[in-house]
Simulated scan of single mutants.
Amino acid sequence: MNYDEFASSGLSRPRNRQLRTEAQIMQDWGGAEEIAVSIVLVSFNQESYIEDALAGVLSQKTSFPFEIILHDDASTDGTREILEKYALEYPEIIIPVLRTVNIFSKGGAPFWEGMKNARGKYVAICEGDDFWIDDGKLAKQYRFMEDNSGAAFCCHNASVHYVGTGEVKDFNTKLSSGYYSTRDLVLRKWFIPTASLFFRREIANRRIPAWYGQVRSQDLALEIVLSLEGDLWYQNEKSSVYRKNAIGSLSAKKEVPWAHLHLRIDLFKKLRGEFPYMKRYLIWIDILITNLKIAYSRILTNMNNNG
Score class of each variant (00 low, 15 high):
Ala118Asn: 02
Ser196Pro: 14
Arg200Ala: 12
Asn172Met: 10
Trp190Gly: 10
Ile285Lys: 01
Gln60Gly: 00
Ser59Asn: 09
Gly230Gln: 04
Glu202Phe: 09
Ser177Gln: 01
Pro14Gln: 00
Ala259Trp: 13
Pro91Arg: 11
Ala23Leu: 13
Ser12Glu: 01
Thr194Lys: 04
Thr165Trp: 02
Leu175Ser: 05
Ser8Ala: 12
Ile93Ala: 06
Ile283Phe: 02
Gly10Lys: 00
Leu70Glu: 15
Ala74Asn: 12
Asn205Thr: 04
Asp77Pro: 10
Arg188Asn: 09
Asp130Leu: 03
Asp72Tyr: 13
Lys238Ile: 04
Arg15Gln: 15
Ile82Gly: 08
Asp72Phe: 14
Asn205Arg: 07
Gly78Phe: 04
Gln141Arg: 01
Pro96Leu: 10
Arg216His: 09
Phe104Gly: 01
Gly30Pro: 01
Leu187Asn: 03
Ile95His: 09
Glu113Gly: 07
Tyr212Trp: 11
Glu92Val: 00
Ala252Met: 04
Glu84Val: 11
Arg272Glu: 10
Lys253Gly: 06
Lys106Pro: 02
Tyr162Ile: 02
Phe191Arg: 09
Ala87Met: 06
Phe104His: 11
Gln27Cys: 03
Gly78Arg: 05
His260Ala: 09
Pro110Glu: 11
Leu271Ile: 04
Ile94Val: 13
Asp28Ser: 14
Ala259Val: 15
Asp184Arg: 01
Leu98Cys: 11
Arg119Met: 14
Leu138Asp: 09
